[in-house]
Design a protein around this nucleic acid. Sequence first.
DNA 1: CCAAAAGTGTTTCACGTACACCCATGC
DNA 2: GCATGGGTGTACGTGAAACACTTTTGG
Lengths: 229, 229
Amino acid sequence: MSYKYEYARAALTVDCVVFGLDEEDLKILLIQRDIEPFEGRWALPGGFVRLDETLEESAKRELEEETGIKKVFLEQLYTFSELERDPRERVISVAYYALVQLSNHRVKAATDARDAAWFSVNSIPSLAFDHEKILSLAHERLRGKVRYQPLGFELLPTKFTLRQLQHLYEVILDREIDKRNFRKKIQAMDILIELDEFEQGVAHRAARLYKFDRQKYKRMTKNGFNFEI
Amino acid sequence: MSYKYEYARAALTVDCVVFGLDEEDLKILLIQRDIEPFEGRWALPGGFVRLDETLEESAKRELEEETGIKKVFLEQLYTFSELERDPRERVISVAYYALVQLSNHRVKAATDARDAAWFSVNSIPSLAFDHEKILSLAHERLRGKVRYQPLGFELLPTKFTLRQLQHLYEVILDREIDKRNFRKKIQAMDILIELDEFEQGVAHRAARLYKFDRQKYKRMTKNGFNFEI
DNA sequence: CCAAAAGTGTTTCACGTACACCCATGC
DNA sequence: GCATGGGTGTACGTGAAACACTTTTGG
């Protein structure tokens, strides 16, 4: 079976830059390609778009097929269209970036992939296609956006300490933040729910746990509130 | 002649949201379609992407073909992929937004268009396809970005008065700005070149003209300067 | 009792904001 | 000389930034 068109058409793919955070640093998820081109090379998870799905659906499907990840924060990044970005033929790729709670995602390799693994954004191997360019745009977007939108919470467990939150911003923005000023600022925003729970099993005073109050944030946004770190 | 593929492929288009500014308000450029579907309806300029051009090249070409506009600030906005957005078949569209100096652009209609005209963003007619959605995202993006990047200058003549610049922000951000504070802020940024020229033919004291110092802005940006209105 | 991180207050300074008046020009 | 917008200075308050110590807990 084949499909005929009057004019030549580019192939269309999606690629996903998946960010996760652990105690040390910001990580991204790569798969090792099991097919040509770039067989054996690390690459962003992604694949061809089907005609019966939107781009976002396609990105979610590929992510689940190749890495087992479901239900994540996903947002469109940019569409890449350089003529020679794929050696096979003209391929245009719509990139997405995703934010996941790394601890929930022991990754498993699957379709078209030998392996899947988390890499620190500071030590990325050589990637297939123009994926390094895509990754660096995604990283830039994350850095820019995390200051003005509450994206950070997507990278943390539902319940987190203020230290974890601060650490998140320090890692993503790559600068130190004054502890007291950070706490004052975030608490003044009044978008966190203070829980009566504390972290467990630490060799020092246990820190209080908080939750992000998404409902309240939405209400406040409607009334002109602007999140900013 | 025809082209065959193993899998079905979506058609790919670009659409352009072109912004211009005049004394009254923010305007966008629309064309009246001369072919089906939506014949006679107003729509964003745009068209099918060819295999030998990038998306940006495609957007520039369509813009020139349909409206005569060349050399503009152009930036990718978003890629739209709803299944039913085009009644003919599956069409995915990459939207761009452009900023032009309206006074330089007496528009002319051309290819595939009966007519081309500027409309105030506050009174847009019913549009073809999902173009209203695209337009409203573009408008939102412009509002958001104009505060953090020196996009506004793209909408003004090379030489402009501080009043024109202030008016630009008032129109785009849809709020009044205090004259003295605005002038202090913009002059403190030190990114304008004060000219020894003044506006002509006004029935009151003539205002000094300024130019945006793009070179200096780039240098300052490298050193950590952040534009913000 | 020691180590390690939690948690808290105050001062300082810069900047945003609000506000009123004089100046230059064309008609 | 009057109408119109150009152009400037200052006082006040808020919020960012810098900084040090006490508290709690586990080992």
